[in-house]
């Protein structure tokens, strides 16, 4: 459904006056998500997760330039195609109600989303989707600020699910929510995938992603370091391929709760070799010399020269 190949995004930032500096928050990103699949995208803040969503939707700011390829349903995406597909074939579930129009009743916003995606009867589509997500008909008359946390989630999911979008991108859909609301939102994500859509679940919360995803893509400093089936996240993490993924797994409070020293490199000062090498317990001179390729390893993918394939 969606293939991202060697995507890089560079921003021109002003330092002082007119002098500009290039920063590269996404450097060599690869990703595949199939129809009916829920792919969890995890990584620290600053690993390029949200930027990926913006790049796929074609809503990067004007001071960004992108290189690489994004394929959707076998066709290369161009800015013109992205604009045509946005809201119809590719839908976004945003982080908060802050992304809704604060002055428009939520029912009307869902109907507008339905209309945009080509529904023959937006009113009927909105009624059905509200019923599906346990929203009462009269809730359509509320304004975004009147929604409780749980209702806001359901409305946001409704705006994306009301149409026929075959790719749904959820960008941090569960920020700091209570466990019950998180579980409900995640269940909705799963249902969307089970209907045959491709779902990209972008989150910093490993635990949340593991409960519903089919596969997990792990981002580090703007690159994909590993793609693994969820079943590999168990025990001491021996089935995982990349040392960073293992470190993330071990850092969970329900596991060992130990962290890896150091910090992600900043996007204007990336190391020349493997981006993880400065913190990697396995790093060798070879790692520091060149960036490793993403290669198939035991039914998944890893960007590490030390892992056995």
């Amino acid at each position: 459904m969606l293939s991202v190949r060697n995507l890089s995004i560079t921003f021109a930032m002003y330092e002082a006056g007119l002098r500009r500096r290039a920063i590269t928050p996404i450097a060599g990103l690869d990703l595949d998500v199939r129809a009916g699949e829920l792919l969890g995208v995890i990584g620290a803040s600053g690993s390029g997760k949200s930027l990926l969503a913006h790049a796929v939707l074609g809503i990067l700011p004007s001071n960004a330039s992108a290189a690489g390829q994004i394929w959707f349903k076998g066709e290369l995406l161009t800015p013109a195609r992205q604009e045509a597909l946005r809201g119809k074939e590719i839908a976004l579930i945003p982080q908060s109600v802050g992304f809704l129009d604060p002055l428009m009743r939520v029912g009307r916003q869902v109907r507008r989303a339905a209309q945009l995606s080509g529904a023959s009867s937006p009113v009927e589509a909105q009624r059905r989707i509200f019923e599906r997500y346990g929203l009462r008909p009269q809730d359509a008359r509320l304004y975004p600020f009147q929604l409780s946390g749980g209702m806001a989630r359901r409305v946001l999911v409704s705006t994306a699910a009301v149409g026929q979008a075959s790719l749904i991108i959820a960008d941090e859909p569960t920020p700091g929510l209570h466990p019950e609301v998180v579980a409900e939102t995640l269940r909705h994500m799963r249902e969307l995938a089970d209907e045959g859509r491709a779902v990209l679940l972008i989150t910093h919360d490993v635990g949340a992603a593991l409960t519903v995803a089919d596969r997990i893509a792990v981002f580090y400093a703007g690159t994909t370091v590993e793609v693994a089936p969820v079943a590999d996240f168990q025990g001491d993490g021996a089935a995982l391929r990349h040392p960073y993924t293992r470190a993330l797994w071990r850092a969970l409070p329900q596991n060992e709760f130990i962290s890896l020293p150091g910090a992600q490199p900043t996007p204007d000062d990336l190391p020349a070799g493997c981006l993880f090498a400065p913190r990697c317990p396995l790093a060798t001179a070879e790692c520091r010399a060149a960036r490793p390729e993403l290669r198939p390893v035991r039914g998944g993918w890893a960007r590490c020269i030390h892992v056995e394939s």
């Binding site: 995890i42 993330l248 709760f257």
Partner: peptide, 17 residues
Amino acid sequence: DEMTTMLDANTQAHIWQ
């Protein structure tokens, strides 16, 4: 107050240590 809720597991474990 929810000090590490928005952070990844690794940074969370580090800050708490």
